[in-house]
Design a protein around this nucleic acid. Structure first.
Length: 458
RNA sequence: GCCCCCAUCGUCUAUCGGUUAGGACGAGGGAUUCUCAUUCCCUAAAGCGGGGUUCGACUCCCCGUGGGGGCGCCA
């Protein structure tokens, strides 16, 4: 039975790199029918915060990465917060002490390597250190292959203030929680030799390791960090991204299903995901590609789903708080569905639809200049308003409106386009928007005519 | 400084010794369309360098170079 874990520490915002590590663990668990454990590594009392912890829970849930064991989910290997596992650590530390594999020095407890010892001056760190002659530690990594590294210095496992360090608790918990596969970022690869030595010292089986490549910042050198542009998961949540788009994008950063497929359902990703498909080289984060995927998902959303998400976004943004108040539900729905095929993301919606909800919309000066400079736009608008005024023009379907305009254009020896631009400018103040006829239908005859008359009078 | 990992278009990647080196994002051009988008078509764009191994290397090996990571009483 495969057991994997995601072990974040709540010392900062939840970023893309952590999310991808969580995702790969989750995918592997789901692919193999294994168990996904969430463990909170909150041993750093100074930097931990409950607020950051909630961000982690929130982001994981938003991404749909549900955990089978962990805080809020229960499980037989708890507690799942390291701050609550101290008695367990004490037991394990005592085992090491009893076995002669740990000793006290300067008030701290050190892990003892086996081998011949001698002192040497380390010029780089500018201090004298004790080196231990040891055999190389062998790591069989599912992604890197066989990696050898020499661990040649004893290291601290319990600080002088009594708190155990990361390397120790990480290994103890993996043993106690019966973790079979450790899937984590490559930044841990060099530390893995410490962990392997600890597993051996405890007489525990060494889990399989899979060190996944890192995500590099999109501009400049180095790996992505919390401070980088677009690095935070909550930012995409706030901007109304479709979580599935982020999952899809992240899954393809450092993994490929073979072949050319890119847009995949979660079920399909789970079915195809496996460790041998994970790349060995670091990947650069590309916001543009993510945005493109998000657009594809927005376009594909079922109408009800789209409306629900859009409304939630509007509510969070307080879009209607300053204006005349919340619009009519049915009207809002019509506006949203009219806009869905045209936008690149939910976040574009408020600006894209603003003129639907206020009579106080601005007329874009540049567009006005361009539109009013050719032909006889005011005459055209006058003609159009006079036609739309007639009750015989059915305003309930796009087609009827379109036919009325086309009929007018034909009678004048003109085309639809000769009326479109000026009508759009008058009614929306811009040259960007949904289909004109759909716009008219949704706004309704009275509002459309009123706007046209106001524009003609100005 | 020492140790570890990595190396195909600008970016994400396919290729598991023999291909016109393919796809996607982005870029440029075009078509469709009532604007703007979408969609569709086209174009430009890559095997880091040097040695080997082999009939034949992007692919295997070595050395450089470059990039990344680690070397805390942080995680």
């Amino acid at each position: 039975m495969i057991r994997v874990r995601f072990a974040p520490s709540p010392t900062g915002f939840f970023h893309i790199g952590s999310a991808r590590t969580a995702l790969f663990n989750w995918l592997y668990a789901r692919h193999t029918g294994g168990t996904f454990v969430l463990r909170i590594e909150d041993t750093d009392r100074e930097r931990n915060s409950e607020a950051f912890l909630n961000v982690i829970y929130d982001s994981l849930k938003w991404l749909g990465l549900n955990w089978d064991e962990g805080p809020g989910a229960g499980g037989d290997h708890g507690p799942y917060r390291q701050s609550e596992r101290d008695p367990i650590y004490r037991d394990y530390i005592q085992k090491l002490l009893d076995a002669g594999r740990a000793y006290e020095k300067d008030g701290a407890i050190w892990f003892k390597l086996i081998g011949e010892r001698h002192e040497i001056f380390d010029a780089h760190r500018k201090k004298t250190v004790v080196k231990v002659k040891t055999a190389p530690t062998e790591i069989n990594d599912l992604i890197r292959g066989r990696v050898e590294r020499v661990e040649d210095e004893d290291f601290v496992i319990v600080r002088s203030d009594g708190s155990p360090v990361f390397h120790l608790v990480n290994v103890i918990d993996d043993i106690a929680m019966k973790i079979t596969h450790v899937i984590r970022g490559e930044d841990h690869l060099s530390n893995t030799s410490k962990h392997v030595e600890l597993f051996k010292a405890f007489g525990a089986p060494v889990p399989h390791f899979a060190h996944i490549p890192l995500i590099l910042k999109q501009n400049g050198p180095g790996k992505m960090s919390k401070r980088d542009q677009g690095a935070l998961v909550e930012e995409y949540q706030r901007r109304g991204y479709i979580p599935h788009a982020l999952v899809n994008f992240l899954s393809l950063l450092g993994w490929n299903p073979g072949g050319d497929r890119e847009i995949m359902s979660v079920a399909e990703i789970i079915r195809l995901f496996d460790l041998p498909g994970v790349n060995q080289s670091n990947a650069r984060f590309d916001e543009k590609k993510l945005a493109h995927m998000n657009m594809a998902y927005v376009l594909a959303l079922a109408p009800d789903d789209f409306v629900t998400r859009a409304k939630a976004f509007f509510a969070k943004q307080n879009t209607f708080s300053q204006s005349a108040g919340a619009p009519d539900e049915a009207y809002l729905r019509d506006v949203l569905l009219l806009s869905q095929p045209k936008i690149k993301g939910i976040e574009d919606l408020p600006a894209y639809t603003a003129y639907f909800f206020t009579e106080d919309y601005a007329i874009d000066a540049k567009v006005r200049e361009k539109t009013m400079s050719k032909g006889a736009p005011k005459t055209r608008l006058r003609e159009l308003a006079d036609v739309l005024k007639q009750p015989s023009v059915d305003f309930s379907t796009d087609l009827a409106i379109e036919e009325a305009i086309k009929k007018l254009a034909a009678a004048k020896g003109l085309g639809f386009g000769d009326y479109q631009a000026v009508a759009r400018l008058a009614v929306s103040g811009t040259n960007i928007g949904p289909n004109l006829t759909g716009m008219f239908r949704v706004m309704g005859r009275d509002r459309v005519l009123a706007r046209m008359e106001r524009f003609l009078a100005a």
